[in-house]
Amino acid sequence: MRTLLLIIAFQFLIIDGFTQQNKFVLKGTITDTLYHLGKVVLIYKDSTDRFKFDTAITTNGKFSFKGELPIVSRMQLTVHAEPNLSLSKRNKQIEIYFAIENCDAEVTISKFNDYTIRGSNCYNDLLSFNNALNPLFKKHKGSELIQRQNALVDSFIMAKPSSYVSLLLMYERISNATYLGELNQWFNKLPENFQKASIGLNMQKKLKKLKEIAPGQLAPNFTMPDLHGNMVSLYDYKGKYVFIHFWGSWCSPCRQENVNLVNANLSKNNENLIFIGVSVDESKTDLENAILKDKITWTQLTSFKGFTQTAMLEFGVKGVPRNFLIDPNGKIIAMDLRGSELLEKLIGLVQ
């Protein structure tokens, strides 16, 4: 399959409890003679939910793997050229990424990202989806492209809710979501056995977190150190409006938002509006340089542990910029405000 375009980032996902067959056989053929005496490495998650690294030696371009999946797994297959070639040729390798269920499948590989798989329903559905997806990249850009992609995903899930691909698409949508919206309704369109599978349970956890941080909900408390080592809790500021900005020194949109807030001069002489920055930086020097350059004067919290810090976990932050506006009662009243919309909201609170 040439240039398989996935809107799903490659991840090792497993789905269990859906079919009778609990083993897979993957037979392969490599047409390029450069790899006819090479080595093949297959990485996937096995039935114990552990990464499995299998190797096979090609014989006249043929190889075979077998194993046991919970039901379906994403896989990475790497083909290395025969070891007795010159160094420049030996460094050449083919990598392909795909997903199959427990089945008897055959893969034919020509070169990088040029392959076909027979015998897998998951592969067939993914091929069908991408045949519809690929033309969108040629016809549309920006927000229009995103809207078209989302519409395609919606229509695919509606048409094939029992497809493994629908489950993967739903997982991608929920994993990248920053607000709840209609995700619960879409999740409920999946078959019950998908919802109760391990990947379905993971999605339910994310949906629960999105509900907890939605506007109208009580903001979760957290305690983190500031740059001077003082411990600061969010609930220390109850009775005031609190604007929390999750950011990083390397994030251009984050830095621009800092500049906008500094220029608006909203953080000074406004006792009822508190600004808190939570940095995902792991380097103190990088953070301090950014604070100095952006002329930030409000409190900055960090333990220099990236996205594993307490505040990130409590608010489900997996990317920046993110922000939350909290009212004096501790409830979230807005989130992910940007540019003029953000400034207008904050100015309205201090006037």
Rank of each mutant, 00 (worst) to 15 (best):
L183W: 10
I276S: 13
V278H: 03
N221A: 10
I244W: 00
L210H: 05
N176E: 10
L218K: 11
S279F: 00
E182F: 12
L210V: 01
K284H: 05
G200V: 01
F275P: 02
Y179I: 14
H228E: 15
K205F: 02
Q309M: 11
Q217I: 02
P215G: 12
F194G: 06
L180E: 12
K295Y: 02
K208S: 12
K268F: 01
L292D: 08
Y179A: 13
H228R: 15
I296R: 04
G277Q: 09
K189E: 04
G229C: 14
Q195P: 09
K293T: 09
A264G: 08
L169C: 02
I291H: 08
R173F: 12
A290I: 00
N193M: 15
L180K: 14
Y235D: 14
F222H: 08
I213R: 07
F222C: 12
V232S: 08
S233V: 08
Q185N: 12
L301N: 13
W186Y: 15
H228L: 12
L169A: 01
I174R: 03
N193E: 10
N263T: 15
L210N: 06
A177Y: 13
A264H: 06
G248P: 06
M224S: 14
F307Q: 01
I199M: 04
L218N: 13
F304M: 09
L180N: 10
